[in-house]
Computed example of a mutant assay.
Amino acid sequence: MRIGLITSTPGHPLLAATTALLTPGHQVVHLDPDTATAPTGPLADVHLLKARTPRALELAAALERHGAPVVNTAAATALCQDRTAMADLALRAGLPFAPTRTFPTLADLAAGPPPAGPVVVKSRHSRRHDLVALVDSAARLRELAASAPREPVVVQDFAPSSGDDHKLWVVGDHVFAALRRSELSPEGQGPSRPLPEGGLPPGWAGLVRRVGELFALDVYGVDILDTGDGTPLIVDINAFPGVRGQAGAPEALAALALSRAGGKGTSPRR
């Protein structure tokens, strides 16, 4: 099989380990979205889209138009980058997603009435090093607005929790989980602490699989808060996250790639 990696960082730990498992029995090729153009030669049997830049999405969409399977699709990846669209779809489907309000810019948010209580302000468009900040005062909001006044943002009410985020990742049919100190913590985000699937509250594994079905994702991450007694609150969804430090993740990704390549992209999630 011929597997294509759409990424500018083929040495990423997950991709490097997956490549080592696939070769030499299969050919793995690297497509850098910053330099690659529309396909002109033989297509790979499947492409793994481990990039979210506009150029990466354009390349993935071009490959799809030429009949090449892409995991995740360009459309599914783009949907997860728009937190407004993400929240709207999740809430309409009845998922326990944090209610989300959208503002054209941070300046618009700061110009309105101050939040009634602590809120989490996030960049509307998910990307590396985007904005995720706890705002508990009008002064803090003005400070953020001064630093990036034109940034489109979404706002979610701050939900008290244990202080740990549940990071759940799905690769094909496999669910991986870890606890990680919230990035909103004064101490900052800590290292991930692997959590066996059996250690999750009842129903959570099924919940994250439902997310994948709804968003047409095969490789994705879901950030969940435990708001008390195992009650889940989804606060973010990511297409093709790094899944670092999770034993078995490279094996699951290699198996998924070969499965999609053998079926020419056919996915039960679709």
Rank of each mutant, 00 (worst) to 15 (best):
A177T: 02
G199V: 08
V211K: 03
G198D: 15
K167P: 14
V208K: 04
P201L: 06
G198I: 04
L217N: 06
G221D: 12
L207A: 03
G206D: 13
V153S: 09
V170Y: 00
P194N: 10
S192V: 02
G206E: 11
S182Y: 03
Q189F: 00
L214T: 11
F176D: 13
E197S: 13
S185Y: 05
G163M: 07
D218G: 15
T231I: 12
A205H: 01
G206N: 00
P149S: 01
I224E: 05
R193C: 04
S185Q: 08
G230C: 07
G188Y: 08
G172M: 06
A146F: 01
S185C: 10
Y220V: 06
V170S: 02
H174P: 00
G198C: 11
V219A: 15
V154Q: 14
A216W: 11
G198F: 02
L195W: 00
D226S: 06
D165T: 01
D164P: 02
P194W: 07
G190L: 08
V170C: 12
E187D: 13
D165Q: 04
F215S: 13
S147R: 15
G188N: 09
V154D: 13
G212M: 05
E213S: 15
A178V: 09
P160W: 10
H166D: 02
G188I: 06
T231A: 15
W204E: 01
R150P: 00
P194K: 10
E187K: 06
V211Y: 03
P191Y: 06
P152I: 10
L207P: 00
P196D: 10
G221F: 12
V211A: 07
L207S: 03
G199M: 12
W169D: 14
L200G: 01
R181M: 09
P201I: 09
R180H: 05
S192C: 13
L200S: 03
D226I: 10
L179Y: 04
P194D: 08
P160H: 08
Q189N: 01
G203S: 04
P202D: 11
S185F: 04
A146D: 10
Y220W: 08
V153A: 11
K167N: 12
L214G: 10
D218V: 06
D165P: 01
D164I: 03
P232H: 11
P149A: 02
Y220S: 08
S185N: 15
T227Q: 13
A216D: 14
E151A: 10
I224R: 01
D157R: 14
E183W: 05
A178M: 11
V211H: 02
V208M: 04
E213L: 15
